[in-house]
Nucleic acid binder design. Structure first.
Lengths: 346, 346
DNA sequence: ACCCCGTGGAGAACCGGTTTTCCAGACGGT
DNA sequence: ACCGTCTGGAAAACCGGTTCTCCACGGGGT
């Protein structure tokens, strides 16, 4: 039978362990570690405590801390689709900024199958996280309903989607980016320009389409064709085929996501169009892959990391002050010229 | 001045709130809610408690629970790169299985810049999660060192990588999948087959290369060429260009990741090779995008969701019993035939 | 010798759960 | 009427922190 002496290191060092070895009480250790400025303490005692805490590898227990402070220092980022690399960039920006502000980020994929999405509200109610960054695009999301019904119950910010009346939207200048895409195509001489904006009920699709239409009008043009289709390769393929068969005069296409562009390129090829001469393509959102397509794909790169970081800023601000507001990142997008946009041959 | 009556709903309902309204003590409520079978209680009292808890929307405070139980019911999944869709599939499998077993999964991207990676061990030490699913591929990872030094301090499992001596590896049959790819190419008549395995120091690259070599040998062949390059588009491009320029007799190429294949296709085109007739390509890992490339890309689809689920199984088993073991998912991969593999023309 | 004040820290309450121990009262048997 | 047993639940300790209140002690001034 082996008895554990009190000198034996336990599984983890606790505050009281540090206190015992330092010859003080745990309240002192807590205040030293947290840098309480109202504490008057002998410098040597302070350094002794800090050294012992370090020796023991002391780390505060997150649960105990959350219980005592009524806050966790964790934010949840809800994204609709992990395989969409757009969210990878947003996530990186959010992580970095959260870290900067002393928060951690918990990432959750908000798939439709997870019990209606109410689980995510539960993250906050059960005290796992302090607030929610909601990047889900689904229009009829039950979580969104709930957040709108009792907005103050749960700190939250909507990222890259627009929930009217929430006053908690942080977004990109999608209209501006779309206008830039139009300008780029027009500058190359295109006048018969089509677009695949994405599902009409989703706000990102609406915003990009709105900017597209408005800028065409500015140039005295109107859309050659608009065809919806979801944000996937298949959606781009279907929409582009529809456009190219029903409006063969189209010389340029603006797609709403990178993978839509992939689908659209395949659609063009399947109809015997040669890229880029028979059809110029530019897409919203950039990707490392753009350099390795044939033709290399011209894109509008968006400041996604900044979007994530700004969303964190807003959420932390909301946690601290209770104030909420909308914010749009006005600049930061840019056209990345590659080979998929050339002057029209007709 | 408004005074809050005790009838007023607080921010969240606590156990004691449910208890008061039920006319019992919180210990009873706790035992009822947790289904304590040793509790003898009047059925009507039980239903009353449950109804009131439901009415109040009671959710236990995760921190308090973790403090009391010394477990959180949360597992952390550490992945090296969020923009890699392979991990999206692994993550989905892990989420689903974790949910099944009553756990939640916290996702963390293990980027190199995050303070040496020791932060992740801290997730466990600080009581935020119960265990770690480590999918990071970096060979020299400080976290891996730490886990190897004190393996019992932190429950963990290595996913899709092989850490020798850890006895906590769960992986796919990469060698078998590579053998299947070789078989597929050989069945189409190829005898001059090259591979871009990826960075030589990473175990996934080694495992795929090993299976490739062994199966070629089985067919009485030897590799036409092997060129390393990282797992990205650029890595595939560079490696494929090297192969095609230095070993022009190559008729078929097996790449180690989907995006490597994208890069390799571009490399082939850049050298005037026509796909697939001048070069057949097959890649490890499938993607929805494969259907929209030119030519449509033949792949070896891996059971990634099952990998994630199995990893969770093993970690939960480790938490429950302290037992550890290696596990390889032997089957489940399959060739997805598309258009990028054709008989050689030479 | 006495008072006052600043220094340096002790002690206890509390956060919201879980779990173990214990007990009042009803009930049945003799 | 008394005893033992079972039923249904109360009470308290504990998990590991944070924070508020309070106090012992020593030095300086008069």
């Amino acid at each position: 039978m082996v008895t554990i002496s009190s000198q034996e290191p336990r599984g983890r060092a606790r505050l009281v362990d540090v206190a015992e070895r330092s010859g003080v009480t745990k309240s002192i250790v807590s205040r030293v570690i947290n840098g309480d400025t109202t504490l008057r303490i002998r410098p040597e005692t302070r350094t002794r405590i800090l050294r012992i805490a370090d020796d023991l590898g002391y780390r505060p227990h997150a649960g105990a801390r959350a219980l005592s402070l009524s806050r966790t220092g964790v934010l949840a980022l809800l994204i609709p689709d992990l395989s969409n690399s757009v969210y990878a960039a947003v996530t990186r920006g959010a992580y970095r900024q959260a870290r900067e502000l002393g928060y951690a980020v918990l990432l959750a994929e908000d798939t439709a199958d997870v019990g209606g999405g109410d689980d995510y509200a539960e993250l906050v109610i059960s005290g796992r996280v302090d607030g929610l960054l909601v990047a889900s695009a689904r229009a009829d999301h039950p979580l969104v309903d709930r957040l709108l019904r009792e907005p103050d119950a749960i700190a939250h910010v909507f990222v890259n989607r627009e929930v009217p009346g929430s006053h908690r939207n942080v977004g990109l200048d999608m209209a501006g980016a779309s206008a830039a895409a139009v300008d780029h195509l027009v500058a190359h001489g295109h006048r018969h320009i089509a677009m695949t904006p994405g599902p009409p009920e989703l706000t990102p699709a609406q915003a990009r389409l709105g900017g597209f239409r408005a800028r065409l009008e500015h140039h005295g043009l109107s859309p050659e064709a608009i065809a919806s289709g979801d944000f996937s390769e298949a959606g781009g393929y279907t929409a582009a085929r529809e456009i190219l068969t029903r409006w063969p005069s189209t010389t340029a296409l603006y797609t709403s996501t990178f993978v839509q562009a992939i689908g659209a390129m395949q659609a063009a090829r399947s109809l015997g169009r040669r890229l880029p001469h028979d059809l110029s393509i530019i897409t919203y959102d950039d990707s490392p892959m753009a350099d390795y397509l044939e033709p290399r794909l011209t894109t509008v790169a968006m400041p996604l990391a900044e979007l994530g970081a700004t969303a964190v800023d807003l959420l932390v601000e909301q946690l601290a002050s209770g104030q909420v507001r909308d914010l749009r990142i006005e600049d930061g997008f840019r056209i990345v010229e590659r080979d998929s946009v050339v002057p029209p041959t007709r």
